[in-house]
Nucleic acid binder design. Structure first.
Lengths: 162, 162
DNA sequence: TATTGTTATACTCTATAACTATA
DNA sequence: TATAGTTATAGAGTATAACAATA
């Protein structure tokens, strides 16, 4: 195992990473200038805004966005201080903390969104046809689901060595 | 203008960002544990290893990887201190600094690469067919070229307003 | 005047480890 | 014993602004 990637795979990997890096940087700036938030904070708010009751447990909120508990606690602290979320105990599990987005949080997301969408369209979707979009969406959805199914690396710091 | 993204676009955007975020985190860890480098540093070395004479000017090196001059100077300083690159004056342009990767730098990249490739394969390419790979490569190459052609946001902090 | 690169500084983000409390 | 979350702390990354030198 561990054979070399095909050249085509390597090119694809590099194109993907560079593109998303540039896109990430662009949206980071947009979110910061339009809404005084980091992109991570914006993503957390966006997730809450889309959640069933506009609330999620800390762990659920972190998924795919933040990779350490303490990092999330820190960001949640900032968002709470800014009045964009509230934190309270969960009725189902006394250990869990339920995070809820406030109206101010929803407003903030609404303020950021139009410009955000504009940046994403200009940078990412502009050069793509409808067909391209469908292909990209299909592939990346599959990749994301595959990654979600993967054992979390954060919790599995290679033990076995043989 | 600035109409809402189609739902399909939004889903695609989110899947893309989450996937690459997870991938980024995984390769970051791999590069750090296998080669004692940050991912940014690894990318810089990898670019130099692939460059025509194994050397690039600071500005060319930064493209798509680092978004501020000072950030690159800092990272280059660390890489030079570690003996992985050297910096010298450019014969073509007295203002420019030519960065060259050393043999130790090439060795370091070679040390990191196998494990790196393994992570990328497991996380990104595993769930993709040959056809998917071709589609992804085609689309992301096009996106990257589009972004490269874009006026650099860093240097164009929106002036016009009307 | 514009561009290349460096320096100094300040700030944000992230992660590690130790800890509390509940399942 | 395992999981959810917090705290404190330390380290790395990044950006801004002021600067020097060359085009």
């Amino acid at each position: 195992m561990a054979e070399a990637l095909e050249p085509e795979q390597l090119d694809t990997y590099f194109a993907l990473m560079e593109s998303v890096s540039v896109l990430h940087h662009a949206v980071e700036q947009q979110v910061r200038s339009a809404g005084e938030l980091s992109y991570v904070q914006f993503q957390l708010l966006a997730r809450l805004a889309d959640a069933p009751d506009r609330q999620l447990t800390m762990t659920a909120l972190a998924d795919g966005v933040v990779y350490s508990r303490s990092g999330l606690t820190h960001q949640a602290g900032l968002l709470e201080k800014a009045g964009l979320i509230t934190r309270g105990p969960s009725p189902d599990d006394q250990r869990a903390t339920l995070v809820t987005i406030t109206q101010a949080g929803l407003d903030r997301v609404a303020t950021i969104l139009p410009g955000h969408i504009e940046v994403v369209r200009d940078l990412l979707f502009d050069p793509l046809s409808t067909k391209d979009l469908a292909a990209l969406g299909d592939v990346m959805t599959r990749v994301r689901d595959h990654m979600r199914a993967q054992p979390p690396r954060s919790a599995a710091p290679r033990k076995r060595r043989t």
